[in-house]
Design a protein around this nucleic acid. Structure first.
Length: 97
DNA sequence: TACGTGACGCCGT
DNA sequence: CACGGCGCCACGT
């Protein structure tokens, strides 16, 4: 099993600074698994309960379909504005201007 | 063992 | 800008 990969993915997600966001693909790359965005989604589904999974969005800035509602609420709680289930371009890049 | 599915991503139309 | 198709890999049947 890719337990090591899971560990890295969890670490990458945990490393996302509060008030910023990242993407599945970025997290995968960060974990040394480029192209394994789907794996990131799987890991978050299985072991993401203790992680800031709400800071992980799709590459286009939209929220994950299954949890969009709660994710948007949590992001707003972090000070991130979400509109129409989508993240404004200004915030798209998990980096501050 | 093979097939279908999915917290995704990129390219073409 | 919206929609559809293909690629990717781990997992359940």
């Amino acid at each position: 099993m890719d337990e090591a990969a899971h560990e890295r993915i969890r670490a990458a997600v945990a490393a996302i600074p509060a008030g910023t966001t990242s993407t599945y693909g970025a997290v995968a790359a960060e974990a040394g698994l480029p192209g394994r965005a789907r794996l990131v989604g799987r890991v978050l589904r299985e072991d993401g309960h203790d992680l800031p999974w709400h800071r992980v969005l799709r590459a286009d800035g939209t929220c994950a379909p299954h949890v969009a509602q709660e994710q948007a609420a949590r992001l707003r709680a972090e000070g991130i504005l979400v509109e129409g289930g989508r993240l404004p371009k200004a915030f798209r890049s998990r980096r501050e201007p």
